[in-house]
Amino acid sequence: VPPGLGLAYRELDCDDPETEQVAMEAVDYINKNRNRGYKHTLNQIDKVKVWPRRPMGEVFEIEIDTLETTCHVLDPTPVVNCSVRQLTEHAVEGDCDFRVLKQDGQFFVSFAKCDSSPDSAEDVLKVCPDCPLLAPINATRVVRTVEAALTAFNADNNGSYFQLVEVSRAQLVPLPPSTYVEFAVAATDCVAKEVTDPAKCNLLAEKQYGFCKATLNEKATGDAVDVTCTVFQTEPKLPQPQPDTYTLTPGVASAVPATLPANLPAAAMVVGPLVV
């Protein structure tokens, strides 16, 4: 290293417009590369260091805090139009470390690592003593609610049979005794009204996803399920540049099925979100 040049980083204000630009690139990267859970939005920039990079450019080492929004990652709504999940709904935050190369005015993510965690039960109950807390997605009541909701949705659906992609969140409500769930679905090559064995249905080559919210009320006369699903417009996904290292916690690992036969019929194009 030539003397005097040094390999020191420069410190930048966390609220500097350049830092914020890098942070927004990082959040955009998170939302484009997650395939389960919800979109996140920037909450706070914790730290930033800017390293010189030879032969040219700079590397931003940045730590950011994010908050979960109410938009599922499969929802095409731009994150700026998504509401932040409120404390009373048992909010989830993300802690992320990024390295972003800035060269010729362009940004390239070279490293990303995020951990997400829900707010503590104590914090939620402090602001809202009666609010239901997040429940494990494999809880018996949750599984039963999702199954009942998906069955009800498909029974009312004149188009494709939709299969479960993932359960995104669930809450056990004490009074009245009920279970609230949110889950993602995907269209298959089966017709909903004609399905006899759902295991034989395949996802469409041109994926069509939906997002459902459902409540199962446990009544003395029997369970009553209320489900609302939004089917998203299909759109071709452009391949995203991948970093050298990309680590995600098990909680945000891929849940979308891998390869599918390419000769399946294409999904019908839906103009705008379809609420069923």
Partner: peptide
Amino acid sequence: TVVQPDVAAATRPLVRPCPGRIRHFKI
């Protein structure tokens, strides 16, 4: 801070450069 009249007091930044502002709420 008590200083002599002709000695400049150490200036401290009014705003800490990091962490930055909270946009929504802290959990």
